[in-house]
Structure formats: structure tokens, C-alpha cells
Amino acid sequence: MSDLEYLVRQPKKATKNPPLLILLHGYGSNEQDLFSFAEELPDDFLIISAQAPNTLGFGSYAWYAINFDDINGKFSDLKQAKESIDKIAIFIDEIKAKFNTDPNKTFLLGFSQGSILSYSLSFFHPNKVQHVIALSGYINTELLPESISKEIKTDYYCSHGSVDQVLPVEWARKTKPFLDNLGLQNVYSEYPVGHGVAPQNFHSFKKWIEERL
């Protein structure tokens, strides 16, 4: 059992095996955050917004701790991150079974920390999801398996704010060359915003999603 809490938006059109979209929020947020997108996304979807397991207090949660000290500066708790990746993988399987979703149409959308884990999950658990939408994140090379499967068919929508003050755009710019080198389909775009999702960014990834339904 993954024991992650979550919100559900049922498909607006009843279908036997709906496509599944799972939302993973960023550090210090909660499952309500990205769920505000839900009403604007395709009616066919079963949309699940998961809440990270580690509480920061006052309605804030994290998939893994980000620590600060005088010696190392800012660093991520990679052990906790890997535990969350495994929890999310189990959670996806549980949701697929519970709601009888289309096994060939699983979308994973993450923002910031949720985006970092979306990338990592797609490499640790090949083809568990077919499509990754990674907003304002990057591929953390410390959160990758020792060898990456050549059987991965997942494709990626990647976007970042060009003036992101939380995760530098330079980190995100390494994403496309990394995915290209693996022969994985991807698109990468930037928007003139900080650590957030611009309206034109939303319309762009919505169109990308619709083309894959």
C-alpha cells in the first residue's frame, strides 16, 4: 500500500477505461495546488492529485526534504526522494487497478519537486507512465538508476521559467540534450516567468496532452 492521500476528478464522460492523469505538487505545497488545473483539462481524464507524504506543517508537504547547512549549502535528501518515487510507483498501480484506467494512457504531471520525481520515476520504472509533463523541474542525475533501460517509450513535455529564481533555468536546459541522447521523444520550452506556470505554458501543455489522447 502506498497510503498517499489524494483528490479525484472523475471523467466527465463515462468510459470503461478512462485515460489517467496523476498530478504531483511541488515542495511546500499540497494536493489542492495543481488540482486547480483539473477543470480546464480534457473531460475524458480521470485526474488524481496526490499529496506528498512528508509534512512540513500548516498544510505544506514535501516529497523529500531539502536541507540547508553552512558546509554543503542546499542539498536534497536523496534517500527520502527514492522512497517517494517507490511510493508513487505503487500508488500509480493502485489507482490504475481501482479505477480500471486505460493501461496505455497514463500521464504524469509534476511541478518543481514533483517534476523532478516524475522524470526519475520514468527511468526507475520504465513505461509505468507513457507521458510525462515536467513543469519547472530538471533531471537530477543523482536520482537515476545505474543503467537506463533502452526499452523506454515514454515521451516528455518539459517547460521552465526563464527567470526562475528557485530552480535555475540552466539546470532545466540540460534536459533536452539528456533526453535526445537517449533517443526519447521530448519538447522543451521556456516562458518569461519565475517559478510558476504562465497561461501560455498551460495552453501549450494542454494541447500536447490532447494530441496524445
Rank of each mutant, 00 (worst) to 15 (best):
121 L>A: 08
159 S>M: 11
8 V>H: 05
79 K>D: 14
187 V>P: 01
89 A>S: 15
199 P>A: 13
126 P>K: 05
131 H>C: 00
47 I>D: 03
67 N>E: 12
54 N>S: 11
208 W>E: 04
149 S>E: 11
211 E>L: 14
143 L>G: 10
4 L>W: 09
5 E>W: 03
63 W>E: 08
125 H>Y: 15
118 S>D: 07
131 H>Y: 15
114 G>A: 06
143 L>W: 09
59 G>P: 10
173 R>T: 05
112 S>F: 11
94 E>Q: 15
14 A>S: 12
17 N>F: 04
168 P>C: 07
148 I>Q: 06
129 V>W: 10
64 Y>W: 04
133 I>T: 10
35 F>P: 05
86 D>S: 13
144 L>C: 09
95 I>T: 08
148 I>W: 11
13 K>P: 00
9 R>T: 02
81 A>H: 04
49 S>F: 08
2 S>L: 03
6 Y>C: 02
185 Q>G: 07
209 I>G: 01
179 L>T: 06
107 F>I: 14
101 T>N: 08
210 E>V: 15
104 N>I: 00
179 L>P: 01
137 G>T: 10
86 D>M: 03
213 L>N: 05
158 C>M: 08
4 L>T: 03
97 A>M: 10
192 P>K: 11
153 K>H: 13
190 E>W: 06
62 A>C: 14
172 A>N: 13
211 E>P: 00
203 H>D: 15
115 S>N: 10
88 I>A: 01
5 E>C: 04
154 T>I: 10
5 E>K: 14
138 Y>H: 12
57 G>K: 07
12 K>N: 10
